[in-house]
Structures are given as structure tokens and as C-alpha cells.
């Protein structure tokens, strides 16, 4: 299969997996607050594991370009939040039914998906097995994230099937950015350390700004730490075998 098609295929799988986020909602009416906390912690740990794998794989890259790329990625995430007025948005307000909140929550999830697409694309450029693994890690990450989003959407009266569809739709950016990133690095290999740094910076910024703050209110500090570290460790270990 042509490499670009591989990127397209696996990033599509990652985005489509978000639909599974509604499964807990089918099993019970409303997830408990603690489960939301653990979902967020799993999502955060997987992102941190992805950032770790990228940094380790980029060990031989120019530190200056990598560091500058990180600055750009962090700057992108910060600016995206600032410009959309979502920097203090709580992504877990199940009972907030205001139209403004609904629009912002979808916007945040859509913006959040973009650097994850960059992550898949840059990992594919480093090595196809790493790229496939990264796409699968992001796919798993998309599930708990979509659970929290779908819980909000269904609480507003939306049908579960539509919530699943919207969860996938907010992740379409992953496919676009994965293919775009892969193409850019293919056309100009010198961009690799910049793009890798960008992905790492944005991933770490987003997991701290979006996922962790709520976790700590939803469940105990110790369980947040353990779940996050476990998710991160699994990604680091499995990815390490591929590298």
C-alpha cells in the first residue's frame, strides 16, 4: 500500500474509534463523576506516553529545531484557547445546557484533534510501525475523550447515535492533519524536528490545560496519578518495543 494511503487509513481508524466512546452510555444512563475523572486521566496518560515516544524517537534531531518546534506547538495550543475564549473552559459540565457552552465544547474538541493528527503524521514519517502504533494509541485515547463529550451531548437530549457521530466528526481534523503532516515531511525532510517538537509541545500543553484540571476534582489525586502513569507506561513500553 502506498505510504500516504497507510497514513490515511490509520488516522481514519483513529478518528472513527471515537464512536466507541458512547458504549459506557449505552450500558448505563450516566457515567459517575469518578469514571469521568478516570476517563480523563487515561486520555491524559496516553497523550503523555505519545509525547514521550516522540521525544525518544527524535533523540538524534537538532535540539535547536526541536526546541523551536516545541515553542510553536505550545504557542499554537495557547493561542487556540485564547482566541476561542476557551482557556478556562471546564470540559465536563454535564448539566450546562447553554448553546454557547455546546458550541465551545465542540470547538475545543476539534482544535484538540489537530495536534494529534500531527502526532500520527510525524510518527509515520519516523517509521511506519511507530506511526501505526501511534495511530492506535490516539484511537484508544479518543474513546474516553468521546465518552465525556457524549455524556454532555446526550444530557442535552441528543440521541446516542448522533453523539457518536459528532464525536467522530470532531476528530476529522486528525485525518487531515496526519496526511498533511506526512506530506510536508515527505516534501521537506528538514521540517521533521520542527514538526516533532510542535506535536510534543501541543500534546503536553493540552493534556495539562484541558484534561488534568478536571480529573483532580472528579476523583482522588492518587488514583489520577496511578491511572495517568499506567496509561503512559503502557504506551512507552509497547512503543519502545517497536522503536
Amino acid at each position: 500500500m502506498p505510504a500516504t494511503l497507510t497514513v490515511l487509513l490509520y488516522s481514519s481508524i483513529a478518528a472513527a474509534t471515537a464512536a466507541f466512546g458512547v458504549v459506557p452510555l449505552l450500558l448505563r444512563q450516566r457515567p459517575s463523576v469518578r469514571w469521568l475523572g478516570w476517563s480523563n486521566a487515561v486520555a491524559a496518560g496516553l497523550m503523555l506516553g505519545a509525547a514521550y515516544l516522540l521525544l525518544v524517537s527524535g533523540g538524534s534531531l537538532s535540539p535547536l529545531a526541536l526546541g523551536s518546534g516545541t515553542g510553536l506547538g505550545v504557542g499554537f495550543a495557547y493561542a487556540a484557547h485564547r482566541l476561542s475564549g476557551t482557556e478556562d473552559l471546564d470540559l465536563n459540565e454535564l448539566d450546562n445546557a447553554s448553546p454557547d457552552y455546546g458550541a465551545k465544547i465542540l470547538l475545543v474538541h476539534t482544535l484538540h484533534a489537530a495536534p494529534e493528527g500531527v502526532t500520527i503524521g510525524v510518527a509515520m514519517a519516523l517509521s511506519p510501525p511507530l506511526g501505526v502504533f501511534m495511530a492506535l494509541a490516539i484511537a484508544v485515547h479518543n474513546v474516553p475523550e468521546a465518552t465525556v463529550l457524549s455524556a454532555i451531548l446526550t444530557n442535552r437530549g441528543m440521541a446516542v447515535s448522533r453523539a457518536a457521530g459528532l464525536s467522530v466528526a470532531t476528530n476529522i481534523g486528525q485525518i487531515l492533519m496526519a496526511v498533511f503532516t506526512y506530506a510536508v515531511i515527505g516534501a521537506a525532510a528538514a521540517t521533521l524536528p520542527w514538526v516533532l517538537g510542535f506535536a510534543v509541545g501541543a500534546l503536553v500543553y493540552l493534556l495539562i490545560a484541558e484534561l488534568l484540571p478536571e480529573c483532580y476534582h472528579q476523583t482522588g489525586h492518587t488514583s489520577v496519578a496511578l491511572v495517568t502513569i499506567l496509561a503512559m507506561g503502557i504506551v512507552a513500553l509497547l512503543g519502545g518495543w517497536l522503536g
Binding site: L55, L66, G67, T70, G71, V74, A77, Y78, H81, R82, E87, D88, G197, V200, G201, V204, Y205, L206, I208, A209, E210, P213
Partner: peptide, 16 residues
């Protein structure tokens, strides 16, 4: 502290 400040400090110092 506010989220952007914490996220900025942690992500930049970590990679640095």
C-alpha cells in the same frame, strides 16, 4: 494558578 500558566510552564520546562 490559571490553566494556561501551568500548562505553559510545564510543557516548556519539560522539553527544555
Amino acid at each position: 494558578a490559571r490553566r494556561p500558566a501551568v500548562a505553559l510552564l510545564v510543557s516548556l520546562t519539560m522539553v527544555a
